[in-house]
Design a binder for these strands. Structure first.
Lengths: 196, 196
DNA sequence: CAGCTCGGTCAACGGCTGTAGAATCAAGGT
DNA sequence: ACCTTGATTCTACAGCCGTTGACCGAGCTG
């Protein structure tokens, strides 16, 4: 038999409500942080009973982890010949697109240990790639400074909403940041060094 | 025999316990953020009854404001001829000294509206001075990028504790950051793209 | 059709929170 | 001396939190 259009299978409905909850949770965490986002509020926003949230995700912590699970597109693509440009491209992306997911992590990182670990993990990934491509003995420091700078920019724009930064066109930001990133990423060697 | 050395006047004792509470509160907010720091915990750390905390400071919010009150030494000295060096000097200071006070504000800023306002106020102060001394029409953006960068570095070091940043000697950080700060603070009119 | 599964609801519990107010007791002025 | 002031404590309340377990009813399977 063909599928009745009005008919939704159980699995479909499950998936729908589950992702509705996840979206609501992500928005909550992004707007209010971990502690202030209550399961009851998430449930209400998702038009579900609070008990159901617990039924699907077993605890608030698990809900948080699922809601803020870092998708792979967050990490810098590794096959880039130029770290600086790759970073800037990634930053451009993060300046333009809806920052809800990132915000959820960032806003919770200061109070919630797990969240901090999450941010640190993403950053560490980024950091390692940067360090590896910087051929210098202070590569690690340079890398972390790069990560910190980018973190600061995103925080200042989306969270602190600094005057002049929150509304600035991404391209302008990138242009100003390019020499900064290049300067930090440039080991005092020849650029474009590839190798195994 | 007006003054017995072993004798503490009432006002003295009051001041002592009050500042003991403030210290405990500051440490609590710095370590755990606003929501997670309970009045009971602060009271215990200060070896006082929770009720007393309420009696002195009238609410948790007031306690927070008093505990994180920004002292004037946080703001950049105004009469500096060189903004870049002034910023770097201020940053050096913040890299070396005990960051408890700053951390209390920073850690709470993401979840607590008042705290965010506090950070924004301090930053805005800094920003205005920077902007004024940069002679360019994108001065505001440059200024906020500077603030954001510094914010990111402090966050990355004290809060996120990024590898390679948390233990790095301040001088090394400053040296790496000097061209960055100079570059952003320098109003070279030409946005020109350095050759590809 | 019967029986099991499972999405979804409801009511409740125990714990923790900020806060209020009465009670206690030593200090200090008169 | 008395009586006031003020530092400090005790007890308690009301509300919100995460979490639980019983329950209902519609889909699925045999």
């Amino acid at each position: 038999m063909a599928n009745d259009p009005a008919r939704v299978t159980r699995a479909q409905k499950r998936w729908q409500t589950e992702s509705r909850i996840l979206v609501a949770a992500r928005e909550g965490f992004a707007r209010s942080g971990y502690e202030r986002t209550t399961i009851r509020a998430v449930a209400e926003a998702a038009q579900v009973d609070p008990g159901l949230v617990m039924h699907y995700f077993n605890s608030k912590k698990e809900l948080f982890l699922k809601a803020t699970a870092v998708s792979d597109d967050e990490t810098v693509s590794d096959a880039s010949p130029d770290v600086a440009e790759a970073l800037l491209a990634s930053l451009t992306d993060r300046l333009v697109t809806e920052p809800t997911a990132s915000l959820a992590l960032l806003r919770s990182m200061l109070t919630h240990e797990e969240a901090r670990e999450g941010v640190r993990r993403v950053t560490a990934d980024q950091l390692e790639q940067i360090s590896r491509s910087i051929d210098s003995d202070d590569a690690e420091l340079r890398g972390s400074l790069l990560s910190a700078t980018i973190l600061g920019v995103i925080l200042g724009r989306h969270l602190l909403e600094l005057d002049g930064l929150k509304d600035a066109p991404p391209q302008e930001i990138i242009d100003l940041l390019r020499p900064v990133v290049r300067g930090l990423a440039a080991a005092d060697r020849d650029p474009g060094n590839r190798g195994s």
